[in-house]
Design a protein around this nucleic acid. Structure first.
Lengths: 103, 103
DNA sequence: TAATCAATTCGACAGTTGTCGAAATGTCGA
DNA sequence: TCGACATTTCGACAACTGTCGAATTGATTA
């Protein structure tokens, strides 16, 4: 198991903000669970939002560093950036472990 | 290691929203790292916000189910609710593991 | 070239949120 | 009882954000 990278607090809150919207979180779930990079149109078909709004959410996820976008001609393909969610998970787990309550 | 409880998506996004503000996240860090339940005044002294704003953030963290509040006379003491952050961490780790990219 | 299509950008709008000062509430000590 | 103190609530405000339709851009196809 590779050691998780350190994230600054500002980076962490930026990531939480990106995860805090239901539609955006659902989008990330789909990207994460897809076996291959998810196409924009595919994502659009599975979310009750307009193309404009989807584009906005994609940009937010990218800005937070959570996903990578590969553009090919007319199309765009979304994939999870490896290691980021893992780092966040490690931070939260460390927070819980640092605490002494309930133990 | 105890199995982490399941969180609904709505619950998860609510928690992320609570973690998404820098001052609120800092407050949670202080609560988590304190060796005993953190007093309100103590928290106030270490954050550049007014008492009114602090009270607001405390309520948000409590509503999200991240902390417990014990009131004693004039004072209020804040402590991490055990297991919640751990569950969130487990969810994020699972998301990362479900993905096949970068491996 | 013209038409079509995927995706993005623009402009606008309603709803939410972090923030504060001031007022209120409740508690303790003199 | 009275004043000081910790915390909360209230009212207001500026900034941010999710959303859409319409217009734009860029690429593919007829």
């Amino acid at each position: 198991m590779k050691k998780a990278a350190h994230l600054t607090r500002a980076r962490q809150t930026a990531i939480f903000k990106a995860l805090a919207d239901p539609h955006r979180f659902e989008l990330l779930l789909q990207i994460a669970k897809a076996r291959c990079p998810l196409g924009c149109s595919q994502a659009l078909a599975s979310l009750p939002i307009s193309a404009a709004t989807l584009s906005h959410h994609i940009k937010e996820l990218e800005t937070a560093g959570l996903i990578d976008i590969r553009r090919e001609g007319k199309f765009a393909y979304l994939s999870l950036r490896p290691g980021v969610l893992e780092s966040v998970a490690a931070s939260l787990q460390a927070l819980e472990s640092a605490n002494c309550a309930g133990r």
